[in-house]
């Protein structure tokens, strides 16, 4: 008699890897006229694959709708067999799908149109993953959102901002928003138009939204990790994008408070300066 551990490894090989050991099948599983041992085991093997595939189709619904079902399933099944779930939650199941697609992308001349076209699945997968992460994050719905305006900012050049856990910035080579919207409304999406853009995925009032960004906005948000003052970030952005510091400043002081009120950014409480930050807000 097999020990429990051996039996479970045997079962795991048959169901997860589909490596069925016919020699031991009948010794292990009850076989009868109603349903053979092989078909009984098959219920689990098929169920395993299809259940996880359904999860992938649900999480990457837009990609699934844009590719043929056959192609999406091939990508997803290859991913699932390369990276079986090791988590207690199905939320982690599709976590590395975008990376998998990027790593399996065939080599094409750098910067060629073909290479860009090939990047569509991985970029859309990344966008859809960010949306799910945004749905599940803590967000800012329960935080007290500070009222911020241009004057306060100008007096507080050392304020630190960071993106909330429901905000993500990414660069894409396609305009995915119409396809995402179509799928959300149960409609057939058109293939996304090729167009370089920076995209913000964020959550406001528990709704996940998309917004296109100017390059300076994307760079600023990407550098919002709570380590540099907003003024230091402003210098970095103006230097990297060769923008006039004055122009950038005038745009930033009106745009930054919007990002905070929309739940994209949060103000980081600094040791020793929390009191002064609060004092500033209480003056309003």
């Amino acid at each position: 008699m097999q020990k429990l551990n051996e039996l479970q490894h045997w079962f795991g090989r048959a169901v997860i890897r589909r490596e069925l050991d016919y020699d031991t099948l009948l010794e292990t599983i009850v076989d009868n006229e109603q349903l053979s041992a092989e078909r009984r085991l098959g219920v689990y093997a098929e169920g395993y694959q299809l259940r996880l595939l359904e999860c992938m189709r649900a999480e990457y619904a837009c990609l699934d709708a844009l590719l043929s079902r056959e192609l999406f399933d091939r990508f997803a099944l290859n991913y699932l067999s390369a990276r079986p779930s090791t988590s207690y939650t199905l939320f982690d199941l599709g976590g590395e799908f975008a990376l998998f697609l990027a790593n399996t992308r065939p080599p094409m001349p750098e910067g060629s149109e073909q290479q860009t076209a090939m990047k569509m699945p991985e970029q859309l997968a990344q966008l859809e993953r960010y949306r799910v992460m945004s749905i599940r994050g803590k967000g800012s719905e329960h935080s007290e959102i500070p009222t911020l305006d241009a004057t306060i900012l100008l007096f507080q050049p050392n304020f630190l901002f960071k993106r909330t856990d429901t905000s993500f910035v990414m660069a894409t080579d396609f305009d995915f928003s119409p396809a995402i919207e179509a799928v959300d409304n149960d409609q057939q999406p058109d293939f996304p138009e090729q167009k370089s853009q920076h995209l913000l995925i964020y959550r406001q009032g528990y709704r996940v939204k998309l917004m296109t960004l100017e390059p300076w906005q994307a760079l600023f948000l990407q550098s919002c990790d709570g380590h540099y003052s907003w003024q230091a970030q402003q210098h970095l952005v103006s230097e990297q994008l060769q923008l006039s510091g004055g122009d950038l400043l005038s745009q930033l002081i009106t745009w930054l408070p919007q990002m905070v009120s929309m739940g994209v950014l949060e103000l980081v409480e600094q040791e020793g300066t929390i009191g002064s930050q609060k004092a500033v807000f209480s003056m309003i």
Binding site: A58, A61, D64, A65, E128, P189
Partner: peptide, 12 residues
């Protein structure tokens, strides 16, 4: 999950 898509379409 985030999505509730019932119909899937092929883009030939």
């Amino acid at each position: 999950q985030a999505h509730n898509l019932n119909e899937h379409h092929n883009l030939n």
